[in-house]
Nucleic acid binder design. Structure first.
Lengths: 167, 167
DNA sequence: GCAATATACTAGGACATCCAAGGGTTTGGA
DNA sequence: TCCAAACCCTTGGATGTCCTAGTATATTGC
């Protein structure tokens, strides 16, 4: 958005919290705010890499998920659960991926309520190409040290479990 | 969204990455995905706490920022830089906060291009009440251990600096 | 002093996310 | 058997974020 700030705004916020007598929660506030900001930075990088493919991160995640399913197909509700997003978000993503010819909807063979999302040949190919670039341009240059990556996985894994993501 | 999953979907994604020969970037992929998901969980908690106040996180952040400014006023571009969001996002937030009577726009005394955002009495009072609840309900119960909070602040601080957030 | 460039804010559009509701399909208990 | 409750997906609405212009005001350079 612009040039680097002369000071870390999150560190400043923490100081403000302490000055106002909220020292007991100043550190977690700073950590949480840092997570929000980091997510924003990472999402920006990812979206920039995916843009040339006509994909967004939400659509890419769905494509990638399908590409790992043996049959290349998953029920919408399953995708919603695994991606941990609201069902309407999956509907939205599928609409756009289907318009782009990357997936198709098909009826579930035994449950009339369920819709299967299926990768097309184009969809599978695009997922592969996008993953390769994402790996080299984003995940391979995350800027996190190996030790820090392990720490993040451990800390956030515990958090997610406690938050009820999985058991 | 639902009951906990039987398995950690991010750990599964990491296994899929390794199975496909991308072991070198599987760990950072998992860490980055975990950050995305953690942000989503935290944002959900924050929005739930702010909802009774008629606030969203974006609007709360602006209110809080203003409440720490000596005069209770800041130029829009300053707010955009400190919150690290696009100027149009600030315009959006100010529109809504102004409709709610929490801030007012006023002209900059010497620069005709600049608009100052100023807290109203109501705005300052609401920021104070919202912060108290956020501190007790979210930051005070983050679910991160003290050591982990320090680790997060260190790791993400380094990342943000390297990403060009501040110098 | 005036034109060219830079800066500040806003309008309009594309996407994503969630919530609330509605219509169709299954399942289960009376 | 049959109807109510549960489940699945979609539609419509509210928000937030970003990008791309477009307008207005300042600054700079000649």
């Amino acid at each position: 958005m612009g040039a680097p700030l002369p000071r870390d705004p999150i560190a400043d916020a923490r100081l403000n919290w302490e000055r106002h007598g909220w020292s007991d929660v100043a550190a977690p506030m700073a950590a949480i705010t840092a997570i929000m900001r980091t997510q924003q930075i990472l999402l920006g990088r990812i979206e920039a890499v995916l843009k040339p493919f006509g994909l967004t991160f939400a659509r890419y995640e769905l494509l990638a998920l399908l590409s790992f399913a043996r049959s290349g197909a998953l029920p919408m509700n399953k995708a919603s659960a695994l991606l941990q997003v609201h069902p309407t978000s999956v509907t939205n993503a599928v609409d756009r991926l289907q318009s782009a010819g990357l997936v198709i909807r098909s009826p579930h063979p035994t449950d009339g309520r369920t819709t299967l999302i299926e990768l097309t040949t184009d969809g599978r190919a695009l997922a592969k190409r996008a993953t390769a670039v994402l790996n080299s341009e984003v995940f391979g240059q995350s800027g996190f040290g190996d030790q820090d990556v392990d720490q993040l996985i451990r800390i956030l894994g515990t958090f997610r479990r406690n938050a009820g993501d999985f058991s």
